[in-house]
């Protein structure tokens, strides 16, 4: 048996509010809704050199601008190099980009007409770590990741096919390139 002394009106209001908070706490802890994307999950995905596939997160990124901006902020904050500047405009080629201590350029393969070579030259100054991922963020804040091979003699170099998604991104002067 439980006996309760009835409070006055103010006390009853306080009790009702208290009851609501306890009920809400229980509702939060008990679930009943689909989980959203947490900042930690987004951060882990942004910072990983090779993130695990996360379809829900990627779908949310596609749909949500705020999420994409945050993701881009995370990547940018952790970037070793930032290459925002396009050195020279080009009508048909892909303009090289330069950042502090690094340069990225693309050259057509001499051996295969449908291939291009992406070249990242790093000065390695200040004991900077070698980047493992090239992230290209377009003007709608969609960031695209491209894992990098290891650097050799201060150069990271890889071949892509002409239809590789990296090429239009590098061709677009509005795209920001981040190395991390």
């Amino acid at each position: 048996m439980i006996e309760i002394e009835m409070p006055d009106e103010a006390g009853m209001t306080a009790a009702r509010q208290h009851f609501a908070r306890l009920s809400e706490t229980r509702a939060l802890l008990d679930g009943g809704a689909d989980a959203g994307i947490s900042a930690g999950r987004l951060y882990a995905h942004a910072m990983a050199a090779a993130p695990m596939p996360d379809a829900a997160l990627e779908a949310a990124l596609e749909q949500n601008l705020a999420l994409r901006r945050t993701y881009r902020d995370f990547v940018a904050a952790g970037a070793i190099y930032r290459l925002g500047e396009v050195i020279a405009a080009s009508t048909d080629g892909i303009p090289p980009r330069r950042g502090v201590g690094c340069r990225i350029s693309v050259t057509a393969s001499q051996a295969e007409a449908d291939q291009f070579i992406v070249i990242l030259e790093l000065d390695g100054g200040g004991g900077a770590a070698t980047p493992a991922v090239l992230v290209l963020c377009d003007q709608s804040d969609r960031c695209h990741r491209f894992p990098l091979p290891s650097a050799h003699r201060g150069v990271i170099q890889f071949i892509v096919q002409a239809d590789d998604p990296i090429l239009p991104l590098l061709r677009d002067p509005g795209t920001e390139a981040l190395l991390r």
């Binding site: 050259t107 001499q110 051996a111 030259e121 050799h152 003699r153 170099q157 071949i159």
Partner: peptide, 13 residues
């Protein structure tokens, strides 16, 4: 095949 490329690193492909 061995060919030249206008890229600083030599590559095995």
């Amino acid at each position: 095949r061995i060919s030249r490329e206008r890229a600083p690193l030599s590559m095995m492909v």
